[in-house]
């Protein structure tokens, strides 16, 4: 028995897709600033990169608020239980059409590998990117008595850290997009993130409810 469940709520989907758009645009404009290619023009790339960066920060603040108030942050607490089974699935089982080793439920919609990855993304990589980005912007800033500078010897460390973060985010993005195809059907996960609904097995749902 299975039924359609609202797995991803309205805000969650809005946040996810906005974040996706912003990060893709930030990577695109950011690597232009880094000197890889010339498309928007350096000045324009910097301008739009900064606007997108501020938008991402605002979005992130809202997302943190939403996660804390709804308790959804618990979804991301890493667990090492079943991690081997999940790894085995991706490395072997998936080729043999084996079933997913962990069941997706409303209260635990992420598998152990996802938990670990997203935890790293949200607690380490995105904060590091935003923090180095803020330093990049406010390394020089207009003060009351003219332009002032923070007490850091050189932009070099900040810029290199920010670039390293960007590379990791792009690598994550590629892996992430590919892994959306590993649901029940190729488009299952994508559809769920678009519509919010996914077909989940009901008994597990009841079991969970029973436990509460």
């Amino acid at each position: 028995m299975s039924k359609y469940v609202l797995l991803y709520k309205g805000f969650e989907r809005f946040w996810h897709w906005m974040q996706a758009l912003l990060i893709i645009f930030l990577a695109f404009s950011g690597f232009e600033i880094h000197g890889f290619y010339s498309f928007l023009g350096f000045q324009e790339a910097v301008l739009y990169h900064n606007i997108a960066a501020y938008s991402l920060i605002v979005l992130t603040v809202f997302a943190i608020f939403w996660h804390l108030t709804t308790g959804e942050y618990k979804q991301y607490i890493p667990t090492f239980k079943n991690i081997k089974a999940q790894l085995d699935f991706y490395l072997l089982g998936i080729f043999r059409n084996a079933p997913h080793p962990t069941k997706k439920t409303l209260l635990s919609k992420l598998n152990p590998l996802q938990r670990l990855t997203y935890f790293g993304l949200k607690v380490v990589l995105i904060p590091a990117t935003i923090f180095s980005g803020l330093l990049y912007i406010f390394y020089r800033y207009p003060g009351i008595y003219g332009i002032e500078a923070i007490n850091i010897g050189s932009l070099k460390i900040i810029a290199i850290a920010h670039t390293a973060c960007a590379f990791m985010l792009v690598a994550f993005l590629i892996g992430h997009v590919y892994l959306t195809t590993t649901g029940e059907k190729i488009t299952t996960n994508l559809k769920a993130m678009l519509t919010g609904y996914e077909e989940l097995e009901e008994e597990v749902e009841e079991e969970k409810n029973g436990n509460q």
Partner: peptide
């Protein structure tokens, strides 16, 4: 010193 767009690691 480091110039964005010119320098890289």
């Amino acid at each position: 010193f480091y110039i964005p767009g010119r320098d890289f690691s």
